[in-house]
Simulated assay, not measured.
Amino acid sequence: MPIIDSTFKPPFYFRKAFVATVYSGLIRKVQIKQSRERMELADGDFIDLDWSYADQKSDKVIILLSGLEGHAQRPYLTGAAKLFNQNGIDALSVNFRGNSGEPNRKYYAYHSGATDDLHTIVMHAIKDKNYTEVYLKGISLGGNMALKYLGERDDLPSEVKGCIAVSVPCSLEHSSKQLHSFLNKPFHDRFRDSLIESLKVKQAKFPDKLSLEEIKTIKTLHDFDEVYTSRAHGFKNALDYYRKSSCLQFLPHVKVPSLIINALNDSFLTPECFPVKDAKNNPNLYLEMPQYGGHVGFIQRGGVYYNEKRALEFVKEINKN
């Protein structure tokens, strides 16, 4: 499809990517009532799902996927959940393995391309909860996961109608390098420190799989993916993980309407993360590239973020067609 001309214009003081990103991640608050369901998995692990509902019974649900080290109470998920609930659509906010406040049971956890768990969640919504229309909305890592899921499966359930992916690192290899730049050091270090603290908990539970000495060698996010992510999830190394898990290679095969919203001033992204060619060649892909927005910082007046408003508009457009 043609590239979408974005109408997003934030307040002047949120045009700087750093300000928009930090405000959205650390300061924004959204109040919403959620109820938790623990879904037991076939491998003996679990995932905690946080539900919020429309006022009237709905056969539509949007599944919300967080970014790295995110969880279902992050405002970029609760903001979307609240808006969709107000418009007659239930919301299922996913806590990836180990991200619900309780460590998961297995040594492995989640990663950018871990779509088997996503499929299990989708089928749970369809088979166990009887939703006839399922939409996906992924933020950052979650956006990559959602698009990879849509493009890699030949058996995608017919109930999955569409997807919105926001601030997506479509090429994990290039986005990882960008995240290690001096410009992104505050974000890089925050992610790294959080991941290392979680890894120490795992090491205490699985000392035969990882030593404290190995954890001490982790100085960067790439190191973390080299020492833990790749090894725990069956990849040769970090680069193998990045290349096999990036959604970019799967975009030509996406068969349901999917909107990607990536800001041109997102400091986490590189040119490889703006799939203009794929959007032009695949009639199911829509690419919107606002000038502003930073990383998940699409702030506009009124409390509802631009990417949330666009997600709802996109779902309504799908229903018209």
Rank of each mutant, 00 (worst) to 15 (best):
K161F: 06
N237C: 05
I47C: 02
A72S: 15
N95V: 02
D5G: 06
Y131P: 00
F182E: 11
S158M: 01
T7I: 14
L141H: 00
S140H: 12
L64F: 14
M1G: 13
N282W: 08
D117K: 02
I32N: 11
A125T: 01
Y241P: 10
H233V: 01
S246Q: 09
K185G: 07
N144V: 08
H119E: 14
Q34R: 14
V296M: 11
Y228E: 07
G234E: 04
Y292C: 10
V315T: 03
K129V: 03
Y23Q: 04
I261E: 06
L41S: 06
S35R: 15
S176I: 05
Y242H: 03
I62S: 08
N319G: 06
E37W: 09
A17I: 14
G142W: 08
V168E: 03
F298Q: 10
T120D: 08
N281K: 04
Y292M: 09
S158R: 03
D208G: 00
I4H: 09
V61K: 04
I164G: 08
F12N: 10
Y23S: 08
M145Q: 14
K29A: 10
Y305L: 08
G101P: 12
D59R: 13
A54W: 14
P169Q: 01
K57V: 15
V304A: 07
D55E: 15
M145A: 05
Y241N: 13
I62M: 01
L212W: 04
P271A: 05
F274H: 09
V19A: 12
K33I: 13
A42N: 14
M289F: 10
C247V: 09
Y107D: 05
I260P: 08
V22F: 15
S198N: 14
Q203G: 02
Y241W: 12
K236E: 14
K316R: 15
Y76K: 13
K57Y: 05
K185E: 13
